[in-house]
Amino acid sequence: MSTRPQPTQQEKVMGDDDFIVSKTDLKGIITYGNRIFIQMSGYSESELLGAPHNILRHPDMPRVVFKLLWDTIQARREICAYVKNLAKDGSFYWVWANITPSLDRAGDLVGYFSVRRKPRPEAIQVVSGLYRTLLEAERKAGDGQAGMQASLAILNQVLEQKDMSYEEFVFGL
């Protein structure tokens, strides 16, 4: 996967009754993907297996979302997020992602399990606006920590205004 696909304005929409299922190891390397995953991402199973999950990362996504995501699942908590994914052919598809940690019998963290569903169009509208703002803040403040902090501050401000936790906010969309 040395060359990233060039993003296009082509959108793919998930089926109402479908969900994408994938599993990764602790580093985010894909260890399993179901057929819907293969179909939506445009990659073959063999291309997906062993690849990092971020091959699907769309440049429109603010980094702070993934930071929040990783921080949460590494703390062994569930996370839900709206994510814009990049398919192999450059098209994009929105998902309502839910990631939960996988524990073995001894209670050790062994990987992550992700289910991605078709999001409600109204939610996408709100989220894409918010993400644009966050992304802009990240770009303006430059890469690295500064950008992350700037967009995190905006996100917290939005939540504070709504007097909601992140979870409450995304589930309310």
Binding site: D17, F19, N98, V115, R117, E167, E168
Partner: peptide, 20 residues
Amino acid sequence: SAFDHATRGQTFRLAMDQGL
């Protein structure tokens, strides 16, 4: 997940049946 949230009194997190 849904029961975990409900146990803590968080009513916004219902189980999602979409895709099942």
